[in-house]
Write a protein that binds this DNA or RNA. Structure first.
Length: 315
DNA sequence: GGCCAGGCTAGCA
DNA sequence: TGCTAGCATGGC
């Protein structure tokens, strides 16, 4: 079965898939050239395969979402809500562009990344675990640790004759020992942070689903007391997991490097300096952050740019 | 071999 | 409140 979603334009799905903020994770199958995106999603407590393909153009985008035949009407509605959230389909990107249009340093970047939206994590537990793993480590090694974690979980569902790995559940992770993760090259602390967080979920101490009804500040208040979760971690969780629009992880090394480069600064700007600089970017600071992170990735001129040119011959 | 990486905690002043 | 050492590992 399938359903169609019409995102607001511009929406460059091909570029979004080609420029994931983290390395393509083991739990997704991505074909930027089609473009299509497949992963397992939790529906009514079961992992099911979902594929999202783009038909249409950047200015007239349509997403085609396919899923197993046996979903109830309510489950289908759940899938649609999740996909709209994950791919930020209802965000008015042009408002972000017009908001940033007066800032000279930004003009090149918003042009270059035109139509790019963030891809949110499909699941809040998965999101938090990935953010914790990403603390301090270089992105590549963090992705390796995530892959090993998925392998340790070992759950795979069948999809068109191939295996689709599933990110381990909180219940599964809660049952592991710190030593289990140590053998995957987790540090002792990182092992504790990840497993303790899973146990807090399983015990009911933390109810991630309740966060959807909370303000950003309430989410900070709830998560910061947990050991291993600091401000940066909550900020990234709000960005990647919850899709909040106005988050500025000013202490982030990547953000600092990107701003230094974009603004031609001699020294890497400090956290407070960035918070001040970014004040006028509200209420779009999350999008500014995404675009800053993306600015650090080398541009691939023969990929999405060509697609765009074909679709915008006037440019 | 040394520095760095999409930080956090605990200890100290 | 604000600062710092220590953590642990792989990438370059």
């Amino acid at each position: 079965m399938s359903l169609q979603i019409t995102p607001s334009a511009p929406f460059d799905f091909s570029q979004m898939l080609r420029r994931p903020l983290s390395r393509p994770s083991k739990v997704t199958i991505i074909h930027p050239e089609l473009p299509s995106y497949t992963r397992a999603m939790w529906v009514s407590g079961h992992p099911i395969p979902i594929t999202v393909s783009a038909i249409g153009t950047v200015e007239y985008p349509v997403l085609d979402v396919t899923y197993p035949d046996d979903l109830s009407r309510e489950e289908q509605a759940h899938v649609e809500r999740s996909i709209r959230h994950m791919f930020s389909t209802d965000v008015r990107l042009e408002q972000f562009y017009s908001h940033m249009a007066d800032i000279r340093e930004w003009s090149g970047l918003t042009d270059r990344l035109y139509g790019l939206r963030p891809i949110q994590d499909a699941d809040l537990f998965e999101s938090m675990v990935k953010v914790i793993i990403g603390q301090q480590l270089n992105v590549q090694f963090a992705a390796t640790l995530v892959e090993r974690l998925v392998d340790l979980g070992g759950q795979v569902i069948e999809w068109h004759g191939t295996g689709l790995p599933v990110f381990p559940s909180a219940q599964q992770v809660a049952n592991w020992s710190y030593e289990d993760l140590r053998t995957l090259s987790f540090s002792q602390r990182k092992a504790e942070y990840v497993i303790d967080f899973a146990r807090a979920m399983v015990s009911g101490k933390v109810d991630l689903e309740s966060l959807w009804h909370m303000s950003d500040d309430e989410v900070y208040d709830l998560l910061l007391p947990l050991r291993g979760i600091g401000r940066w971690t909550v900020e990234c969780f709000l960005l990647f997991g919850m899709g909040r629009a106005d988050i500025m992880p000013a202490a982030d090394i990547g953000v600092q490097n990107a701003i230094q480069k974009l603004y031609g600064m001699v020294e890497r700007p400090k956290e407070q300096e960035i918070r001040q600089l970014a004040e006028p970017w509200a209420p779009w600071r999350s999008y500014a952050t995404y675009y800053l992170w993306q600015s650090l990735i080398p541009f691939e001129p023969n990929s999405s740019a060509m697609t765009r040119n074909l679709q915008h011959p006037s440019e």
